[in-house]
Structures are given as structure tokens and as C-alpha cells.
């Protein structure tokens, strides 16, 4: 195959993340909330609870449970209208988001209760589950849910023979490209989400995880900056 991918579609370097922005406390009535933007992808997460969980058979008497709901707005995509409401894809992403966040949370004080996280994507340009997880981690911190570390997520991947960080939609949908969303707790380097579309060699995977780790460290800085903006206004 003729290798033509010398430069990224939007002119970034291969290990460069799109411009990021985060804001905490965007939904005043929620217990905790956050917005996270990475390039053309904007995620808003709001946390409600802990509150009583129904149906009661789902309650866990030893600890609280986390319930995530991922949703893309009908007008969020580039071009076609997204069919509103839940579908197979959103159900899967809700589940993996939950599983990406729960290892870092301590819900033992909320037995029988549920912490609800709503994640809404108002504009999308690939990397939505990663933006959703990053926003949800911020919102949970804003709600005061105890956690061992903030979870950060980024998608890495491959287009032709180039390994790249933070794919946009053109790269994500490139024929035979690889998309590898990674969520991790940067303090310990624990990986809480790892999914893959496409094929990679072992070496490529190792290299991509290294790149993801570096990108996650940058994203965490943005997260901490957003928390500081809300919680140290005026300073000491």
C-alpha cells in the first residue's frame, strides 16, 4: 500500500493533542458537574446523588453503585443527525465508562445508594468516550465523591504506518486505521479502560500506551487547572 500519511489532516504533530478546555460547576443544580472540550468534542457531565437506588434488588448492601449514562445529542455529529435516545453503542459506552471510573472511587460509605452520572456530548469529533470519562471524573471530584485519583482518558491509534495521539473523526474513520481509547489513573499508571478497533503489533501497542500515558498527564494538568479555578477563587 502506498504510504501517503506524512502529515496529519489538521496539521498537528503525530503526538500532539487537540486544544483542551475544562470547566467545573457548569450545571448549578447538580451535586457536581464539569465540561471538557478536546478539539471539536465537547462533553458535559453532571453527578446526582448519592440517592436511593430503585429497583431495590439492584442495591448493594456493602457499597454504593455508580450508574453512568452516555448520550450524544441529536445535532452533535458532523453532518447527519444522530438518532436520539439510547442505542447499542451508547449502552456499551455507558458500561465501559462505569468500569473505567469505579476502580478509582470509594463508594463504601453509600451502601444501598446510587451515584448517577449523566454524560452528554453536545458536539462530537471522535474521542467521545474519552472526553466523557475525563469530564465525569471532574464532575465526581466536584461532587465530593471520595476517589484515589482523577481518571483521565485519551484515544491513541494508527493511521497507515503512523502512531498518533488524540484522533479526530477523519483519522478515526480512516480505512484500516486503529483506534485505541485508553483511560488511566496517572499517579499509579493503572489502566482502567482499553478498547481496540483494528490491528496492532505488540511493539506498536507498547509504544501507543507510552504515548497515551504522556497525553493523559497533560490532560490531568487541564483537569487540575479547572478544579483550581473553581476552588481557589481569589486565592489566599
Amino acid at each position: 500500500m502506498n504510504k501517503t500519511y506524512d502529515k496529519r489532516f489538521d496539521g498537528r504533530k503525530f503526538d500532539e493533542i487537540r486544544p483542551m478546555e475544562a470547566k467545573v460547576g457548569v450545571v448549578p443544580r447538580a451535586n457536581g458537574s464539569a465540561m471538557f472540550r478536546i478539539g471539536g468534542t465537547i462533553a458535559i457531565a453532571a453527578v446526582y446523588g448519592p440517592k436511593e437506588l430503585y429497583p431495590a434488588f439492584m442495591q448493594d448492601p456493602t457499597k454504593g453503585i455508580l450508574r453512568c449514562d452516555y448520550n450524544m445529542f441529536a445535532f452533535s455529529g458532523a453532518g447527519d443527525r444522530v438518532k436520539p435516545g439510547g442505542n447499542r453503542r451508547s449502552k456499551e459506552i455507558s458500561m465501559v465508562t462505569e468500569k473505567a471510573l469505579i476502580p478509582m472511587l470509594d463508594l463504601s460509605a453509600y451502601s444501598g445508594a446510587v451515584v448517577d452520572v449523566s454524560i452528554e456530548l453536545i458536539q462530537t469529533d471522535a474521542g467521545t468516550r474519552c472526553a466523557g470519562i475525563t469530564a465525569a471524573a471532574l464532575a465526581l471530584a466536584d461532587a465530593g465523591i471520595p476517589m484515589k485519583d482523577l481518571v483521565t482518558a485519551v484515544s491513541v491509534g494508527k493511521v497507515e504506518d503512523k502512531l498518533i495521539v488524540d484522533l479526530n473523526y477523519e483519522e478515526d474513520s480512516y480505512p484500516e486505521g486503529v483506534d485505541l481509547p485508553v483511560a488511566m489513573a496517572t499517579r499509579t499508571g493503572e489502566i482502567t479502560l482499553l478498547q481496540m478497533d483494528g490491528r496492532l503489533t505488540k511493539e506498536e501497542l507498547k509504544k501507543l500506551l507510552e504515548m497515551a500515558k504522556k497525553a493523559c498527564a497533560d490532560i490531568k494538568e487541564v483537569q487540575i487547572k479547572a478544579l483550581k479555578e473553581k476552588y481557589s477563587l481569589g486565592g489566599k
Binding site: 478509582m104 471530584a141 471520595p146 476517589m147 484515589k148 485519583d149 476552588y231 481557589s232
Partner: peptide
């Protein structure tokens, strides 16, 4: 003492 700290 009295520094603002964040999760993790």
C-alpha cells in the same frame, strides 16, 4: 498547612 488539595 491550609493548601488546597485535589483527589489523587
Amino acid at each position: 498547612d491550609r493548601d488546597i488539595v485535589f483527589p489523587g
